[in-house]
Each structure stands twice: as C-alpha cells, then as structure tokens.
C-alpha cells in the first residue's frame, strides 16, 4: 500500500484538512473558552512531562521527577533564547 508521504499533494491536502478542522473548531469557541483550554492544556502538559521524566528515570520519587522537568526546561529555555536574548546591551560605536 502506497504511503501518503510519497505523494506530496495528498500530504499537503491532509495537512490542510487537519489545520482547517483546528481553525474551524477554534472559531466555534469564545475567546474565553480558547484561553480556558490553553490553561487546561498547559497544566496537563506539565503533568505529562512529570510522568514522562519519572518513567525515564525509573523512579517513584515525585520530587526527583520535578527536578528533572526543571532541568529539561532550563536547557530548552537556553536553546530558545540563544541569539534572541543577551545579558549585555552593546555600546553604540
């Protein structure tokens, strides 16, 4: 059976369909509902990150799990900020 990944036009159509569905769903919501969903998503993502870190570490120690999540987010923050934020403002020539 042919894979959709071998057909760029079909893949684009599928991506568009998925995106269209997300946009139309968001349009049906009020702004407050969209914000509420974002907050809920955020809280749930942190729970999943914590569970994932504990599973990877093979621990049942919740504090250790959070410590690992904190470490990962610090690293991720450095990657995202690289070149975007600096500690010193250059002095004009």
């Amino acid at each position: 059976m042919a894979s959709i990944h071998d057909d760029p036009a079909a893949l684009k159509a599928l991506q568009d369909d998925i995106y269209r569905e997300r946009v139309l769903r968001a349009r049906k919501m009020t702004a407050e509902q969209r914000l509420a969903e974002a907050l809920e998503l955020t809280n749930s993502v942190f729970v999943r990150m914590h569970e994932g870190a504990m599973w990877q570490l093979g621990t049942t120690d919740a504090a250790l799990g959070w410590q690992e999540v904190r470490r990962r987010l610090t690293r991720l923050g450095r990657v995202h900020d690289e070149g975007r934020f600096v500690l010193e403002k250059p002095t004009p020539p």
Binding site: V23, A26, M29, A31, R34, L35, A38, L41, T42, V45
Partner: peptide
C-alpha cells in the same frame, strides 16, 4: 505571549 495567542487563535500550551 501564549495567553494572547490562545485568546485570539488556536489554544496551545505554554511554559
């Protein structure tokens, strides 16, 4: 940030 984006766009999580 994400609060404003989610208010007007597609809800997404943030850090």
């Amino acid at each position: 940030g994400a609060f404003a984006v989610s208010f007007y766009g597609i809800p997404r999580s943030t850090k």
